[in-house]
Design a protein around this nucleic acid. Structure first.
Length: 827
RNA sequence: GCGAGAGUGGCGAAAUUGGCAGACGCGCUGGACUUAGGAUCCAGUGGGCCCAAAGCCCUUGGGGGUUCAACUCCCCCCUCUCGCACCA
């Protein structure tokens, strides 16, 4: 391990202290300057920060400091997503109250973030478990309740047996709990929902306009919302004028191919269709079999489909044919109407089922020539379809819907995969849902003046057996705000994703006491210009926050339609081919890293090792390399300090060497700026600075006796200052120190970002590559304004080119300005 | 199955969007300085032919194609990662 390192510990502590004393990153609304709201997803206070945090915050800080130097009024806040199950679990295990556990973790993690030297406005810090925060969430809940955007209903929900709580659909991954990985089971329960489906269309439509978002996140959201257009209509039950079965289809053009229909096993109409006890028993048994299939089993799409034929038949409204009716496990009660028309000719699932049960298959779309396969889902001409024959699929869909509507048996219909957001959690450490149940008035919201409904402190946490709040008599027994009589409080708490759906708004005025946020401040800062966080929130937090923002907009509270203009999804930090985790033993602790190498090195390596959206492969040797580079910059400044301090304003160099070096300096400015602005290519921005440092060392060693001392000193100074400025947002402590060492009194971050000097970038001549038949044979130095004919002549006459063209006929010569010449020959 | 993305040296990665493949860094090899160095500096480092150099040939998952020119565009195939998963 190296011993010769610059004194990063003193320097980092020193500048962190100075920034804090100067309140350098304190943000104030200022209409005269363009604003830039830079936000990294706030952390859950789990105990300690990990390398993934270091990576996100290094990215965010780079952008924030860069924008500062570009003259923006930057808001860069930090807070804590402080409610959640781990605090409660820790409490059960260790007997510490969740509040104490949470606040201790916050204190420790805050100190870690401060040691990283991130440019946060700590004056805006917030924690979502503070009643002064969740008070406003409760107020909005009541407003949502008034508008029917929050409602209570009994339904089958995802139950995590280990977390002992309900989960939203978005929080179930492949049938397992997103947090603890337990298998989720269905459970019929009463709970609260947010009506996110009311915004399905708008959430989807805006996907096209979120041009600053990564395509893959947009795609995931689109798929999650899952819009499908089609029709809904009734199937008459043969011989039963009192009953009809409503089905949904995206392919109304295929109704003539419907050879049977299917109900979900738990469909409410089933019981009314049964003819006798034998059939009733068969259905009960069938339902039992389906229920025993675990969620995981259900995920295997290729397993055989289970079905039970009922005695009742239905009528195909187009062909008037009586067709069989089934219960089958491949039809889900939760989507559409819980019943389908089956079209084996054009749907593979129906095809599979039809073959298993020996049902007829009618093709209603002409197959393309040479097509081999089973169900055909493609485009084509309609056949075997009565009045739809010879139409295209698209035309037939339209005509079929018209037909259905005219006869009053159905309507055109759009369905979404998106479900309403279940927000009830049967746990303690969350924001109380502000409603009461009164013996006289029923369910009533808490009065606004009684908010916040504070989470009681004294509670028994066992981790099982329902909501812990139900056991706290002083909480449960309350007064009805309407009649003043006895009422019982709701004991469910809100999903913690509710808090994170609006924290970015609270940062605009975090101490505001008269509302969720101060309108003028929110209008000034919103939307977030750059949001940065992990891909794991592609459809969780990011969808909820979009929804909540639209709700607040419709409540007249904010003006923006969308919360985040641009999104950067950074990759994971992995080591030895796997995500860092305690069980794998491949964890790098940020504390150790900062102690051994310093925050600047940790940040530099995080930004250099990979572009931000890719996974970052942690490499201890690579960290040493980053440290080595900062030392190299440090050493250059201090070994040449006298020369550098003597350097005056850079002149137009009088020598070629000087001109080339100065061009390198200014090209570096251009490259680094473009890399940051255009694509967040921080890794190549850093490599460009490394190249400039290498060039500076080289220039220093060769220029001493070849040029006037003053000119040399000026050029070296310009180079070093550019290196420091460009590196500032990446490694802020060491660069502040070097900047001061060069005699500057003001902070580096009050300097404007450098701009390339157009004069320094111009070149007199250029090196062209000369190819013969696409192979590089020579190089040519020509004047920048040389004519094409001149270049051709030079290229053909070139010594190294001659042997390749002598025996062959030159067919043509391609000249690409400033790049290359390609001589094309024929044998 | 559907959707998205990726495949380049020993490793992390670059390539101005069709124009010198492998910048920068790690690792490795050799040298310098040094009591010593795992510090620092200098040089080399895709593969092959060659004692060596000059030089030549090959090389971006595989196969075709378009083009003066392909990591980049088009078609087919293979592999991997991620997301959704019987959504009618």
């Amino acid at each position: 391990m190296s011993t010769d390192r610059y004194p990063f510990r003193e320097i980092e502590a020193k500048w962190q202290r100075i920034w804090e004393e100067r309140q350098q990153f304190h943000a104030v609304e200022d209409a005269s300057r363009p604003k830039f709201y830079c936000l990294e997803m706030f952390p859950y206070p789990s105990g300690r920060i990990h390398m993934g945090h270091v990576r996100v915050y290094a990215i965010g800080d780079l952008l924030a400091r860069y924008k500062w130097m570009r003259g923006f009024n930057v808001l860069h806040p930090m807070g804590w997503d402080a409610f959640g199950l781990p605090a409660e679990n820790a409490a059960i295990e260790n007997g510490v109250h969740p509040a104490i556990w949470t606040y201790e973790n916050i204190d420790y993690m805050r100190s870690q973030l401060k040691k990283l030297g991130i440019s946060y406005d700590w004056g805006r810090e917030l924690a979502t478990c503070d009643p002064s925060y969740y008070k406003w969430e409760q107020l909005i809940f009541i407003k949502m309740l008034e508008r029917g955007l929050a409602y209570r209903r009994r339904s089958t929900v995802n139950w995590c047996p280990s977390c002992q709580t309900v989960l939203a659909n978005e929080q179930v991954e492949a049938g397992r709990c997103w947090r603890c990985d337990s298998e989720v089971t269905p459970r019929e329960i009463e709970g609260w929902f947010f009506k996110i489906t009311a915004y399905a269309d708008e959430l989807l439509a805006w996907c096209d306009r979120l041009t600053g978002w990564p395509e893959r996140v947009i795609t995931m959201q689109r798929n999650w919302i899952g819009r499908s257009e089609g029709a809904e209509f009734d199937l008459a039950v043969a011989g039963r004028s009192d009953l009809a079965i409503r089905v949904f289809t995206t392919r109304p053009d295929t109704v003539f191919g419907m050879t049977y229909a299917v109900l979900a096993p738990e469909h409410p109409l089933v019981d009314r269709l049964l003819t006798d006890d034998a059939e009733r028993r068969a259905v009960t048994e069938f339902r039992g079999e389906v229920a025993r299939e675990s969620e995981i089993e259900r995920l295997a799409a290729d397993r055989p489909k289970r079905g039970l034929r009922l005695r009742a038949k239905v009528v195909n409204p187009f062909s008037r044919a009586e067709i069989p009716l089934f219960l089958a496990d491949y039809v889900l009660m939760g989507y559409g109407t819980g019943a389908i028309m089956a079209v084996p000719g054009e749907d593979q699932r129906d095809w599979d089922f039809a073959r298993q049960h020996g049902l007829p298959i009618i093709e209603t779309v002409k197959r393309p020539d040479g097509w081999v396969g089973e169900a055909y889902a493609g485009d084509g001409v309609k056949i075997n379809s009565g009045f739809l024959d010879d139409l295209s699929v698209t035309e037939a869909k339209r005509k079929a819907i018209d037909w259905i509507v005219e006869r009053g048996i159905g309507v055109a219909k759009v369905n979404y995969r998106l479900r309403d957001w279940g927000i009830s959690r049967q746990r303690y450490w969350g924001a109380p849902i502000p409603v009461l149940y009164c013996e006289r008035d029923g369910m009533v919201p808490e009065a606004e003046e009684n908010l916040p409904v504070v989470l009681p402190r004294d509670v028994q946490l066992s981790g099982k057996g329902g909501s812990p709040l139900a056991e706290v008599a002083s909480f449960v027994n309350a007064t009805c705000p309407t009649c003043g009589g006895k009422a019982r409080r709701e004991t469910d708490t809100m999903d913690t994703f509710v808090e994170s759906s609006w924290y970015f708004l609270r940062y605009a005025s975090p101490r505001y006491e008269r509302g969720m946020f101060e309108r003028s401040a929110a209008e000034y800062w919103m939307p977030v210009d750059q949001y940065i966080g992990g891909i794991e929130h592609a459809v969780l937090h990011l969808l909820y926050a979009r929804f909540y923002t639209k709700v607040l907009r419709d409540l007249g509270m904010v003006k923006v339609d969308e919360p985040f203009t641009a999104l950067l999804s950074q990759g994971m930090v992995i080591k030895d081919g796997a995500k860092m985790s305690k069980s794998k033993g491949n964890v790098v602790d940020p504390d150790d890293l900062i102690h051994t190498f310093g925050a600047d090195t940790a940040r530099l390596f995080s930004l250099f090792a990979a572009p931000p959206e890719k996974d970052l492969d942690w490499n201890d040797h690579g960290v040493e390399g980053a440290s080595r580079f900062l030392n190299r910059v440090w050493r250059f400044v201090f070994t040449h300090l006298d020369t550098l301090k003597a350097g005056a304003v850079p002149p137009t160099p009088s020598t070629d060497e000087g001109r080339v070096f100065r061009r390198t300096i200014h090209e570096t400015i251009k490259r680094v700026t473009e890399d940051i602005e255009r694509d967040f290519h921080f890794n190549t921005a850093i490599s460009a600075v490394m190249e400039l440092v290498n060039a500076t060392y080289a220039f220093e060693s060769v220029s001493a006796d070849r040029m006037a001392g003053a000119e040399r000193a000026a050029l070296l100074r310009e180079a070093v200052e550019v290196v420091i400025l460009l590196l500032g947002p990446i490694a802020p402590h060491v660069t502040e120190e070097l900047w001061a060492a060069l005699g500057h009194a003001a902070s580096l971050f009050e300097q404007p970002w450098p701009t390339p000097d157009a004069g320094a970038l111009t070149r007199k001549d250029v090196t062209l590559v000369v190819q013969v038949d696409g192979k590089v044979r020579s190089r040519l130095q020509v004047d920048i304004d040389a004519t094409e004919e001149h270049i051709q002549r030079l290229a053909l006459a070139d010594d190294k080119v001659q042997p390749w063209v002598r025996a062959r006929a030159v067919e043509r010569v391609v000249v690409v300005a400033n790049r290359l010449v390609n001589i094309v020959t024929r044998a």
